[in-house]
Design a protein around this nucleic acid. Structure first.
Lengths: 165, 165
DNA sequence: ATTTCTTTGGCATTATATGCCTCATAAAGT
DNA sequence: ACTTTATGAGGCATATAATGCCAAAGAAAT
């Protein structure tokens, strides 16, 4: 359950429909959304704005094609730290955030590693370079294990909204 | 390098700027984009349309807030298959694509597993349910290892465009 | 049943997108 | 060197969409 706060909103079926439509297609016009959810444009836009204000709608983005941009290699990197101090973590996270190649970086449990990264680069040469000159040089990084994506079966930014009340 | 085809496009500095702007903010109007890249609206829109037609711009989406929607648990699942036959893979991939909880599914190397999944659910109970009733019941799934995201350091859909010529 | 509060729908205004036409610039051929 | 051709830019007119305001309808509470 989300935390209660003044920005809390009750999300009814209509809001849920709006979110489902928009998270799948961000270029729908307000009129189209209104149509599909059975409202007139005016109240529909008000709901969208309210969802934005509440922070439920975070941002709109444009997704690009990896391969057509020459970014053919996606790597999953598991990284272990030598010492588990706040300073180590802070340094690592700040450094990693500087590299646009890093699409995801999670602190995780359940592995013999602390961080899991998803990195996108053109090819193996570039990956090798990135790993050796950037990742392994960050203070505290002690173990690195690389996996490579052979096939992208699912790659979505959509959240499952079925759990909403 | 991307494959050559009739849909190939030479991406110059202006195109790159457009892509960088749009992949970070999909709700920029054409006029705003034109302004920022130093073009008039007309040629700017033509470039955007060309990038869409070439498949470089794939789609626009809206990103939602996990926590505010009550989706507090993100799991990374490593899955091994009993036999590495095309049928096994096809079955698994088709099944997994049915579940909206699965945000990512990659066939990978370098692990003692075949697939890596990213799954989003409200809590541990729901995760347990999902794993036992859906994932482990798919034919061919032999080994499952779960990790959980403690902290989302970076979670972006933006690609690194610095490698473009 | 009446009052109050919330949400809706319609309308007018403003802003944006889109298609067409003209002009400039660069490359190719004579 | 000059002309020809093609590619892309800019500006304008029109169509489409967003936005704010106000009145009306519906739901909840007393």
């Amino acid at each position: 359950m989300p935390k209660k706060s003044q920005s809390m909103i009750k999300i009814d079926r209509i809001d849920r429909s709006i979110l489902e439509l928009l998270q799948d297609n961000g270029e729908l016009t307000n009129q189209e959304v209104a149509d599909k959810v059975g409202l007139s444009p005016s109240p529909c836009l008000r709901r969208v704005r309210a969802l934005e204000k509440a922070g439920i709608i975070v941002k709109r983005v444009t997704l690009l094609d990896h391969k057509k941009l020459g970014l053919a290699l996606t790597a999953i990197i598991l990284i272990g730290m030598d010492r588990h101090t706040p300073e180590r973590f802070a340094t690592f996270e700040a450094k990693v955030a500087e590299y646009p190649e890093v699409q995801e970086c999670y602190l995780i449990t359940g592995q013999d590693a602390d961080y899991m990264l998803k990195v996108v680069v053109p090819d193996m040469d570039q990956y090798h370079h990135f790993l050796l000159n950037h990742i392994t040089r960050i203070q505290g990084v002690s173990g690195v294990h690389s996996s490579f994506v052979l096939r992208r079966v699912i790659d979505s930014s959509a959240l499952p909204l079925r759990y909403l009340s």
